[in-house]
Amino acid sequence: MTLRLPSKSHHFTSFPPVSTTESPSLFDQLETRTTQELLKSINSLDQTIPALVAAAIPQLEVLVEATVQRLQNGGRLFYIGAGTSGRLGVLDASECPPTFGVPQGLVIGLIAGGDTAIRQAVENAEDNAEQAWRDLEAHQITDRDIVVGIAASGRTPYVIGGLEESRRRGIATGCVVCNAGSAVAAAAEFPVEVPTGPEFVTGSTRMKAGTAQKLVLNMLTTATMIRLGRVKGNKMVDMQMANQKLVDRGQRMLMEELGIGQEEAATLLTEHGSVRAAMAAYNGQ
């Protein structure tokens, strides 16, 4: 079989500029390193991430305030992302109900390729610029909601398309990206940019970029839920009693807050189902 090359007049589609998350690793010859050298090198890069996230706090503060406002007015928080970024959004969304006692569906994580993509890659899913809006429409999204796109590269079509269409329809938009000046950030009203630079393994954004995204999402939903009154003092008083560890934690909270014994705390928690409700009942509220 003869390979026929295109003529010189053929117009190739040029590659986009290389983003910093795709640029070559600062480390090389990795296969020659000892295990200890590999671990220390990875850890040395990981230690740079908290400072980079700290620099983005002014942007994140604006996004948190916008999210609080929407949720206070009956809206929801949607995450859209692909690959690692999508999985992190699904993870953060799934942990809000058990941690803060909010309803399922208040925070919703959508990933390119659907739930199948949580466990395995779905070919070309992230390249579909129309699919994110279809996924959002399936949840009857309205202009009371807010959509946050998550993309390490900042150029994922699934995310860009979802943000652009949301914004066109008057829906608030934010993003978490790991490159400066990206198309995703341009499509979002409230962008959060944490430029994390080259990865230890070139282009493996599940590492530094993923760590930065996880930190930002932790901060976004935790600060939002505290602002919404879902934490008392420093305690998760609305957490779901989903296992014995959490039941024990709830009993300790009641014992500390009310100055009662374990047996009385256990009875209160059994009768009322949550730490907050048990405290209210005990205090006659």
Rank of each mutant, 00 (worst) to 15 (best):
R276M: 11
L63H: 05
T224L: 04
S25D: 08
G250V: 10
V192T: 12
M255N: 02
V159E: 04
P97K: 09
E165H: 10
L88M: 13
N179L: 02
P97H: 07
I111N: 02
I111D: 01
Q213Y: 05
V184F: 10
V102E: 07
S9T: 15
R76Q: 10
T267I: 15
R169G: 03
M236G: 02
A266Q: 05
K40G: 00
T211H: 07
N283T: 13
G105T: 08
M255F: 05
I49Y: 08
G105I: 07
S19I: 01
V90M: 05
M225Q: 10
M236H: 01
G250C: 11
A212K: 05
E126S: 06
A66Q: 14
I150P: 02
A132R: 09
V18A: 13
M255G: 00
I160F: 08
K232T: 14
T156H: 10
H11E: 13
F27G: 00
F190E: 02
L246W: 01
R230C: 10
N179I: 02
A132Q: 06
L215K: 12
P191L: 11
E257W: 03
L91G: 00
A265G: 08
Q36R: 13
D145V: 02
R4I: 15
T35P: 00
E37L: 04
P195N: 12
T222Y: 07
L39Q: 11
P50T: 02
H11N: 08
C96H: 02
N243S: 09
T13C: 13
H11R: 15
D248F: 00
T2A: 13
V247W: 10
S182Y: 09
G174V: 06
V275G: 03
L88S: 12
K208W: 08
P98R: 15
A265Q: 03
L52H: 01
I146P: 03
K232D: 12
N179W: 09
E61L: 11
T84H: 12
D238S: 10
Q120S: 14
K232Q: 13
V216M: 09
S85T: 07
L52I: 06
T205H: 01
I226H: 04
A66H: 06
P157S: 07
N73G: 09
S23M: 08
E95C: 07
S85F: 06
E37S: 09
L71H: 03
S94W: 01
V18Y: 00
A112E: 06
T35C: 02
E22N: 10
V216L: 14
A265C: 06
E165S: 07
A117K: 04
A117D: 05
N124A: 15
A265M: 02
V216Q: 04
Q47M: 11
Y79G: 14
V68N: 04
V62R: 15
T211F: 04
G170K: 01
E256K: 14
P17D: 14
N73I: 06
R276W: 03
E263N: 11
A152S: 11
T205Q: 01
P50I: 04
V159Y: 11
V62M: 09
M207D: 00
E199K: 07
P6Q: 11
T116G: 03
L258G: 08
T116H: 14
N128C: 12
